[in-house]
């Protein structure tokens, strides 16, 4: 590889890294802004999540005497796993800095690791609220897993037998998919949108705005976190949102432009996903909690149909 190419690759990796680490809170802020616009109010500033993070990281924390080191492991794991998972997910034309055979499994399982640690962290408080949130998180994200993997399977069917299994190759096959069986790809994208919403506890699965302990999933899990650990949790959640959004985006984003074009489409895509989520949240009610599994199973079935359509193309 000659120097300019190397430089270009390094530039792409850096751009990817910058988007992954710096952009996520903006997405959360954008969702809030969209919802505010829908409601007919100004809403918090776009940069509010950054302000909140900056404040939390600089203020004190209060720890429950019931808790142990496990409680503090949760926030650390939430951030580390989300960031590492993000490292292997390409953003449209911006290749992931790290790519290897089977990296797609790592995305799902790193998120699972983060979930495991945050659930333990919640259970460490010995409170019914956190237990409730943890139980819901465990149940719902577990049911979201098949939809995610069926999406991977659908894409894998586009690749020739043999050869590697990299997320980059898999997602690069998406344009073929749209050409061959657009219906199937649409179903996969829909299923992944459901995964995005449930994994990030958005309406219709969870309502991050109610602030009522008994109905929430994510916020009630972190009810006892404060100060810097809470900041880490919020940042980790934002990064996780970005990572799954990147996965979803890579199904549809055009690629192959220059570095600047790819960066621009990538960022624009992420912002568009945030707007989409904001619109969804603004226009429908939250599901009854025990109806959530039905919707998740439907998402898996959608992805399953996607697999079938792509298999018979």
């Amino acid at each position: 590889m000659d120097a300019p190419l190397l430089l270009e690759a390094a530039g792409r990796a850096l751009a990817h890294l910058a988007v992954l680490t710096l952009l996520p809170p903006l997405l959360i802020g954008l969702i809030a802004k969209v919802k505010a616009a829908f409601a007919g109010r100004n809403g918090p500033p776009l940069l509010q999540p950054y302000f909140d993070l900056a404040k939390l990281l600089r203020k004190q924390a209060v720890f429950s005497r019931t808790t142990t080191w496990v409680f503090r492991l949760g926030p650390v794991a939430a951030v580390v796993t989300a960031l590492l998972a993000g490292l292997v997910v390409p953003l449209g034309g911006l290749a992931a800095p790290v790519s290897f055979d089977g990296d797609l499994l790592l995305v799902a399982y790193l998120l699972a690791l983060g979930r495991f640690c945050t659930i333990l962290s919640a259970l460490d408080t010995g409170s019914a609220f956190e237990g409730m949130g943890a139980s819901r998180e465990a149940a719902f994200s577990c049911l979201a897993e098949p939809a995610l993997f069926l999406g991977f399977i659908a894409l894998a069917l586009l690749l020739p037998p043999g050869g590697g299994l990299r997320l980059a190759e898999l997602l690069a096959a998406a344009p073929d998919g749209w050409r061959l069986a657009a219906g199937g790809m649409a179903l996969v994208a829909a299923a992944w949108l459901v995964v995005l919403l449930v994994e990030n506890c958005r309406i219709p699965f969870d309502d991050p705005n109610t602030h009522l302990e008994l109905t929430m999933i994510h916020e009630v899990m972190v009810l006892d976190h404060s100060g810097p650990p809470l900041g880490l949790i919020l940042y980790g959640a934002a990064v996780k949102f970005a990572v799954i959004a990147m996965l979803l985006l890579s199904l549809v984003l055009p690629r192959g432009g220059g570095l600047v074009a790819d960066l621009a489409t990538g960022v624009a895509g992420l912002l568009a996903v945030a707007v989409l989520v904001g619109v969804v949240e603004s226009s429908m009610a939250r599901l009854r909690l025990l109806r959530v599994p039905t919707l998740l199973v439907s998402a898996a079935l959608l992805a399953g149909f996607g697999v079938v359509l792509l298999a018979v193309h």
Binding site: A32, A36, A39, G40, R41, N42, G43, P44, P45, Q48, F51, V62, H211, L212, E213, M216, E219, V220, L223, D224, H225, S226, L230
Partner: peptide, 18 residues
């Protein structure tokens, strides 16, 4: 929405820890 406290970065939270 008439007062929209959130636009000033002020909001009410569920947990005193937050």
């Amino acid at each position: 929405l008439a007062w929209d406290l959130g636009r000033f970065g002020i909001s009410y939270v569920a947990s005193p820890r937050h």
